[in-house]
Simulated assay, not measured.
Amino acid sequence: MAEKQQCLNCDSELTTAYCGVCGQKASTHRFSFKEVVITDFMHGIFHLDKGFFFTLKELVTRPGHSIREYVQGKRASHFSYFTLLVILITISFLVSKLAEINIAEIYQKNGQGVFSEIQAFQSKYPRGFLLVSIPIYSIFSFLFFRKSKLNFAENMVLNCYRTAAEYLFTIVFYIACVFMKNIDLISVSYAFLQVLVLIYMIVFYYQFFSEYYQNKILLFLKTVLVSVLITVMSTVIIIFAIGVYASN
């Protein structure tokens, strides 16, 4: 009589190639050098290249169109939206340390002292910032582009990708700051970054929702209005949320 096998993950009895309780593969074994280096490591690199860099390219070259296709079902080639966002946030944080610049000082120099509070909160609580900002962005896009009939979750996905692209621009800015030491030049560059992010938001929304609106002029005007409102109102709401959080 064959000896009964138990799942190494949850100790449940195994009757098939996969555990019926936790789903782990039954043939789990010790790691070998070949498996780690040749199989897992190399596969991880090429899988990352296939999805990660493809998605970055799409977010730069045809942002709205590619993410609309993703939402509609073409997902095999794209990297996970939230994982991408977390990776870019992490890279942005690491590169910012190399740049050794004080964003709060830049805000003060550009007459935007109030935004230093957002930057401080974002740096200290990156996940908390996302929990506040992404839903706010999604509420605006959900309400203003109701004609698309996308649900709130789908708006969360598209705004995760849009925010990821904005972090990509921020990473480029921080890399440039590694070589720039003049605070005036950095301040001008940061102001340019803010304008670039706004333009990108307009292009992203225009491309994404272009399939749902026949009147392209009206759509363009709407995307400009929504992008400006999102920038202004979300900032106000986030500052309010930070104030409530700080008071507690």
Results as ranks from 00 to 15, higher is better:
C7K: 00
D11W: 01
E13Q: 11
C22F: 00
G23C: 03
I38Q: 13
H43I: 05
F46I: 15
H47Q: 12
F53A: 06
T55S: 12
E58D: 05
R68S: 09
Y70P: 06
G73F: 03
G73D: 10
G73I: 08
A76K: 11
F79W: 05
S80F: 00
S80T: 02
I87R: 03
S96V: 00
A99N: 04
A99Q: 05
E100Q: 14
E100D: 15
I103R: 05
E105Y: 01
I106F: 04
I106D: 06
Q108E: 15
G111Q: 11
V114W: 06
F115T: 04
I118H: 02
Q119R: 06
F121M: 01
S123M: 13
P126C: 07
L130M: 12
L130D: 03
Y137T: 07
S141K: 00
L143I: 11
S148T: 08
K149M: 07
N155M: 08
Y167V: 01
S189C: 07
A191H: 08
L193F: 05
V197P: 05
L198I: 12
M201Y: 11
Y206H: 14
F208W: 03
F208D: 07
E211I: 00
Y212Q: 10
Q214P: 03
Q214D: 12
K216D: 08
L221Q: 06
K222R: 12
T223S: 09
V224H: 06
V232M: 07
S234Q: 11
T235R: 03
I239N: 08
A241K: 01
A241N: 06
A246V: 09
